[in-house]
């Protein structure tokens, strides 16, 4: 076949161009570590990768939710445990108060302790978070759960103003978890405690008076009930934390397998790429050498 001089030049330009293009592409791949530079390099795998990344984004969010919920549950647990501790010391005081050898002065002296206990309990029940929202009022977070009416007679001044609805939080695809607790039931104890304080404050109070004993015994039972109630809630929170731990571990496993898959699909095999790059370099080098030799050949130069 007849070869025109310009044909040889064009062929040379094309082959240099082609090799340089390949070298640039492999260098880009190596620089980013990604096998796929543009979706069109591998449409099917880039769709797979995109889907894995979407799932990964969801899981990341769930896991950070779980961490935050755990923190919130831990705080709630702390507040409730404080209340249980307070109730324990209150119960001790009442057991002591029921001792038949107590004088009126002895009983009067207990009032101060009981008042501070009552206030501590009602303060804990009305705990607010950093934004001023009530922690234990169910979903009515703008309302203090324990309402106090000073004008009512002792024994009915406290009432529960919250509700018992759950705040559900999302910790997985379609998985929700209750993140709040309420203190419904604590108001009964507070009323009983208030009644006890009222009774014991009288200078003539007699521990052997059956009416006084009824109040004190009822309060003692009330402490037991409330401790069971709140202690039960603490136990529930412990259980929830365990469930969250399990869910988090599941997320972690799925996330790990997703990340492995993303790497498998998207990561460049550096070894292969290096060999390719080497091949293209050699080819380019050879083209240069060939051109520098053949380009000089001309019949004119020997005439």
């Amino acid at each position: 076949m007849r070869i025109a001089t310009s044909q040889y030049q064009a062929m040379m330009t094309q082959s240099l161009q082609e090799n340089q293009e390949r070298i640039t592409y492999v260098t880009q791949q190596m620089a980013s570590g990604n096998r796929i530079q543009l979706p069109s390099d591998d449409p099917v795998d880039s769709v797979r990768m995109s889907r894995l990344k979407r799932e990964e984004a969801g899981i990341k969010q769930y896991r950070s939710n779980i961490a935050a919920v755990n923190e919130r549950l831990g705080k709630n647990e702390g507040y409730l445990q404080n209340m249980v501790n307070d109730m324990g010391s209150g119960r001790d005081l009442l057991v002591w108060a029921l001792d038949a050898s107590n004088t009126s002065q002895d009983l009067n002296a207990m009032v101060t302790s009981l008042v501070s206990l009552r206030d501590s309990l009602s303060y804990s029940a009305n705990t607010i978070d950093q934004e001023g929202r009530y922690v234990f009022s169910g979903t009515v977070t703008g309302t203090a759960p324990i309402a106090y009416n000073a004008s009512a007679p002792a024994g009915s001044r406290y009432s529960y103003a919250g509700n018992t609805n759950d705040q559900l939080v999302v910790v997985g695809n379609g998985i929700t978890q209750v993140a709040n607790q309420n203190v419904k039931g604590v108001e009964t104890l507070l009323n009983q405690l208030d009644q006890t304080i009222d009774t014991l404050s009288s200078t003539t109070v007699n521990v052997n008076d059956p009416a006084v004993r009824t109040v004190l015994k009822a309060n003692l039972n009330g402490f037991d009930d409330a401790m069971n109630l709140v202690g039960g809630k603490v136990a529930v929170i412990g259980g929830q934390q365990n469930v969250l731990k399990t869910i988090d571990a599941n997320h972690e496993n799925v996330s790990l397998s997703n990340q492995t898959a993303i790497l498998d699909i998207g990561q460049l095999d550096i070894g292969t790429a290096a060999i390719e790059l080497n091949g293209y370099q050699t080819a380019l080098q050879a083209s240069y050498t060939a051109y520098s030799k053949i380009g000089k050949l001309s019949l004119f130069s020997v005439l």
């Binding site: 979407r54 939710n65 910790v171 993140a179």
Partner: peptide, 20 residues
Amino acid sequence: SSGIDGFFAALNSVAGVDPT
């Protein structure tokens, strides 16, 4: 996609932590 992820992640973080 990442904009949509971001929007639902924000919703999720309210849903997952504290709605108020």
